[in-house]
């Protein structure tokens, strides 16, 4: 603790009528950092049936729709790839004239095998590999960024993106279009469930909640999408028929 801090916190203690020079330590105030028991919530998430998960998907879609998230439900990686390929083909780059796409280093994105799908077209697909020193330039050049968020929140149509090796934050930020691929079982009901799962990830230096495309209403309260971040957000929900690993959300995020 530096001198500044000691003085500053001493001032606060004086203001609170405490002795300024005797530091108050958190172990003396166990209630201050007490959090409710989340065992029940964890069990609820882990025990969700496919039918219940499908219900959450429905809620997410409905809420996402009003936030301008375009959702696609697919049954396989191939079908997901088809959606992505169609988006890459039909959309035009905003900041340059070449079609670069960048994706996170994630098994669900690798499974799309995008590099195989543009043999005769001028589309370059990058992966934000941890070892690659050029990731930032590639991200700036890309018009589509693909991520696989860890948690989806049905109630607020929120995607929770954790910053991890091979999964930089700019992938869902710099490109004009953000495509998120999410397994059905990673969608939870509400923020309470999501925060419960996040507790185990609190050591991360950065994470972000994304609820829709970037927007502004600063000019005469007129809503415009694409202020600084992506102007479009597409969510592809991967709902494989054999929903093995319904507790994947728990294991992945815990």
């Amino acid at each position: 603790m530096d001198h500044n801090q000691a003085f500053f916190l001493g001032n606060i203690r004086t203001a609170l009528g405490e002795a300024p020079h005797s530091e108050r330590v958190k172990s003396m105030f166990p209630k201050l950092f007490a959090s409710p028991d989340t065992t029940e919530i964890r069990q609820k998430i882990a025990g969700r049936t496919v039918a219940e998960q499908d219900e959450l998907v429905e809620i997410f879609l409905k809420n996402g729709n009003s936030l301008n998230i375009c959702s696609h439900i697919v049954a396989s990686s191939d079908a997901a790839a088809a959606v992505v390929v169609e988006l890459i083909r039909s959309k035009e780059p905003e900041f340059n004239h070449t079609k670069h796409v960048i994706g996170h280093d994630h098994p669900d994105i690798a499974a799309l095998q995008l590099w195989k799908r543009f043999n005769r077209e001028a589309v370059t697909v990058h992966t934000a590999f941890n070892s690659d020193r050029q990731v930032q330039e590639k991200t700036i050049a890309s018009f589509i960024g693909i991520t696989a968020p860890t948690i989806g929140v049905a109630d607020s149509a929120t995607l929770i993106q954790l910053t991890e090796p091979g999964r930089p934050r700019s992938t869902s930020l710099l490109p004009s279009i953000h495509i998120a691929i999410m397994r059905r079982e990673h969608i939870v009901a509400d923020l309470q469930e999501a925060y419960t799962l996040l507790r185990g990830r609190a050591h991360l230096d950065s994470l972000v909640f994304i609820s829709g495309p970037s927007k502004t209403a600063d000019i005469e309260a007129h809503m415009v999408h694409g202020a600084h971040g992506p102007r479009e957000v597409h969510l592809i929900i991967l709902a494989e028929p054999s929903a093995a690993g319904s507790d994947a959300a728990t294991t992945e995020a815990a």
């Binding site: 934050r169 991360l204 950065s206 972000v208 609820s211």
Partner: peptide, 22 residues
């Protein structure tokens, strides 16, 4: 009147050495 704003970002320190941005 939003359940959440479009972005809620959490920052707890500098980005790790192998992070391309941050």
């Amino acid at each position: 009147l939003q359940k959440l704003s479009t972005y809620v970002s959490f920052t707890g320190g500098p980005s790790s050495a192998d992070d391309p941005d941050g």
